[in-house]
């Protein structure tokens, strides 16, 4: 059990899915992004995913690429992500980090886990690191008591689904679509199928990410998943001008969505 599973279970006990909000640290600048993290928590995110921007984000669509590039131009450092984790923890949500592998490797798998733990973080989502590619990361995370959250996709085979769900703690991150991050008109039946596949492989908690943009979609997904992950729509709401009120309105809409489902 962990802070993450406790929070997901508490949401479930309320008869709803958790709302998981993603923002890259440093967009549009570090100070505004920290304020934005606080807004996510105040407006109803149960879990906040902090993204340290990376120079080569192969799993991200144009909006998050833009935000990452802008943040890097502004001089954001990986250290800033740990500061953001502390902000989220203080504000009362459960912080996790979503990081590309090289940023973790350069800090050192163990140090990355230890720094996250010290900042009050609960786990790490790894978009380009699968459990079989990273036994050293899994060992380091277990040592520190940090959750390892891996992704599954519609293309994931039954064998890999088992491997990935076995190695995931906290929750399993299901991507309902083949493609990069970004809003979609519909996440379709595939989402339900991926969630079912993960549950069949023994996953107790499954959250859905990639493609969710509206409160209505959040409500739909909350009908069968333990959490709804929203990133691009929040980044767009925040925007280059750092509009915290527009962000607050978007999070409020999504928070109502996850509560409207059951």
């Amino acid at each position: 059990m962990s802070a993450l599973t406790d929070r997901l279970d508490a949401c479930k006990a309320e008869g709803r899915a958790a709302l998981v909000g993603y923002l890259p640290v440093g967009y549009p600048d570090v100070a505004t992004s920290l304020a934005a993290m606080r807004v996510l928590v105040e407006a109803g995110c149960d879990i906040v995913e902090v993204g340290p921007p990376y120079s080569d984000p192969v799993l991200d669509g144009p909006m998050i690429q833009h935000a990452a590039a802008r943040a890097l131009e502004g001089g954001v450092k990986v250290d800033d992500a740990f500061a953001a984790v502390s902000v989220v923890a203080e504000a009362g949500a459960v912080p996790v980090v979503m990081s590309y592998a090289n940023l973790m490797l350069q800090r050192g798998w163990s140090r990355f886990a230890a720094d996250l733990k010290a900042a009050g973080g609960a786990g790490v989502i790894t978009p380009d690191l699968t459990p079989d590619a990273a036994p050293a990361w899994v060992d380091a995370a277990r040592e520190e008591g940090v959750d390892t959250i891996f992704l599954v996709a519609p293309s994931t085979t039954r064998e890999r689904m088992q491997l990935t769900c076995d190695a995931s703690t906290g929750f399993v991150y299901a991507t309902p679509l083949m493609g990069v991050t970004g809003e979609r008109a519909s996440v379709g039946d595939a989402a339900e199928r991926v969630v079912k596949g993960a549950r069949d492989a023994g996953a107790e908690r499954v959250c859905i990410g990639v493609g969710v943009a509206t409160g209505a979609q959040a409500a739909e997904i909350a009908g069968y998943a333990d959490g709804v992950i929203v990133g691009t729509a929040l980044v767009r709401a925040l925007g280059d001008e750092g509009d915290l009120e527009r962000l607050r309105a978007k999070v409020t809409e999504l928070a109502e969505g996850v509560r409207a489902a059951r």
């Binding site: 192969v58 799993l59 699968t130 992704l151 599954v152 293309s155 890999r160 991507t175």
Partner: peptide, 14 residues
């Protein structure tokens, strides 16, 4: 070497 890619590509690489 190795294979550090999103899970979505693993089936195709296999």
């Amino acid at each position: 070497g190795g294979r550090f890619v999103p899970e979505a590509l693993m089936a195709a690489l296999d």
